[in-house]
C-alpha cells in the first residue's frame, strides 16, 4: 500500500493533463512497460479487428473484385487495347494483371468505402458500444488509444490492398496464361520482378489511403454515431475525387489527398518512378499530421458521455 501511495504522489506531481503520462511502480503491475504495453494493445486491437465478421466481409467484398474481373474476362473474352479500365486489356495475355486491373477498379470507390468504415468506426464505434469508457478507465490513455486505433486502420489499408493484388494475381494465375510482365514503358520484366512490383503497388495504394484514414479517425472522434463518421469519410473521398476531376479547380488539385491515388502506375514504368511514391507519402503524411493533430486535440478535451 505504501509503495502505491508514494507512486500516487509522483503521479500527482507530474504535470500531465488528460494526456498519457509515464509508468507506475508497483509490485503487482509491470513497472515500466509503456512501449511494450502499447504494442500489446496494438496486438489486441489488430486481433479484435481481424476477428470481426465485418472486417472479413469487407475484405471478401474487395476480393470479389479481382474474382469477378477474372471470371468475366475468362468467359466474355478480353477487351481491345485502350478500352475499359487500364490494364484490363492485358489480362488475356497475362493473367498476372488481374490484380492490377482490379486495383484500378477498387481505388476510386471500394477501397475508400472500406477505409471509411474502419477508420470512421474507430472511436465512434467504441463510443456507441459504450466500450470507450471502459477502455479509457482501464486506463488506455486517450492519445495512446487514438494512435493504436490509427495504426489498426493503417494495417487494414494494407490488408485491403494486399487482398486485391494478391488474390487478383492468384485468380489470374489460375484462369489465364502468365508470363513476363509488360510495363507501361513497353518493355518486359521477369515474372518474379513483376510480382515484386505488384507488391510495391499494394504498398503504394495502402500509403495513399493513410490520409483518408486520418480524416476518418478525426471524424470518428466527433460523434458517437459510427455510421455518420463512416459515411462522411467515404463521401469526402468521393468529393475529393470529383474536385480532382474539375479542371477549373486545378489550383486545389495538388492539395487533395486523392490527387496521387492513380499514380501507383509509376511503379510499373521502366525505370520505376519512385518520386511519386515519395511525393504521395509526403502528401499523405501532411494529412495524417493535420487530421491526427485535430483528432488528438478533439479527443483529449472531449467529455466521454456515451
Amino acid at each position: 500500500m505504501s509503495s502505491r501511495e508514494a507512486d500516487a504522489t509522483t503521479g500527482a506531481a507530474r504535470d500531465a493533463d488528460l494526456a498519457d503520462a509515464g509508468g507506475t511502480t508497483d509490485t503487482v503491475r509491470r513497472p515500466r512497460a509503456a512501449a511494450s504495453g502499447t504494442l500489446r494493445l496494438l496486438g489486441n486491437e489488430l486481433a479484435t479487428l481481424f476477428t470481426r465478421w465485418r472486417t472479413w466481409a469487407m475484405l471478401g467484398a474487395l476480393a470479389l473484385i479481382p474474382i469477378l474481373i477474372g471470371i468475366a474476362i475468362r468467359i466474355a473474352g478480353g477487351s481491345s487495347a485502350g478500352r475499359g479500365p487500364a490494364f484490363l486489356d492485358q489480362i488475356t495475355g497475362n493473367g498476372l494483371f488481374v490484380g492490377i486491373a482490379a486495383m484500378t477498379v477498387a481505388i476510386p470507390l471500394f477501397l475508400p468505402l472500406t477505409i471509411g468504415v474502419t477508420a470512421g468506426d474507430a472511436i465512434a464505434g467504441e463510443a456507441s458500444h459504450g466500450t470507450l469508457r471502459y477502455l479509457l478507465i482501464a486506463p488506455a490513455g486517450r492519445i495512446r488509444l487514438l494512435v493504436v486505433k490509427y495504426l489498426a486502420a493503417a494495417a487494414f489499408c494494407l490488408a485491403g490492398t494486399l487482398t486485391v493484388v494478391v488474390l487478383g494475381t492468384l485468380v489470374g494465375w489460375l484462369l489465364f496464361p502468365i508470363g513476363p510482365v509488360t510495363l507501361l514503358s513497353g518493355d518486359e520484366i521477369p515474372v518474379g520482378e513483376g510480382l515484386l512490383r505488384f507488391l510495391a503497388v499494394a504498398a503504394y495504394v495502402a500509403v495513399s489511403l493513410l490520409g483518408l484514414s486520418a480524416i476518418g479517425l478525426f471524424l470518428s472522434t466527433l460523434t458517437t454515431v459510427p455510421i455518420g463518421a463512416m459515411a462522411a469519410t467515404s463521401i469526402l473521398a468521393v468529393v475529393s475525387q470529383i474536385v480532382g476531376a474539375i479542371p477549373q479547380l486545378e489550383a486545389l488539385h495538388p492539395w487533395l489527398f486523392t490527387d496521387r491515388w492513380l499514380d501507383f502506375a509509376d511503379l510499373l514504368r521502366s525505370p520505376p518512378v519512385w518520386d511519386s511514391f515519395a511525393a504521395n507519402a509526403l502528401l499523405q503524411g501532411a494529412y495524417v499530421l493535420v487530421f491526427g493533430t485535430l483528432a488528438i486535440t478533439r479527443f483529449v478535451t472531449r467529455d466521454v458521455l456515451s
Binding site: 485502350g82 487500364a86 486489356d89 484500378t104 507501361l184 514503358s185 513497353g186 492513380l262 502506375a265 514504368r269
Partner: peptide, 27 residues
Amino acid sequence: VLDQLAERNVYVDGEAAEGWFVDSETK
C-alpha cells in the same frame, strides 16, 4: 511522357540510327 496509368516514350539512338516511339495506351 508520364501520363496517368499510361506512358509514351521516344527513344533515339543516334549512333545506331534508330529510334522507337512507344505508346502504352494503343500498345
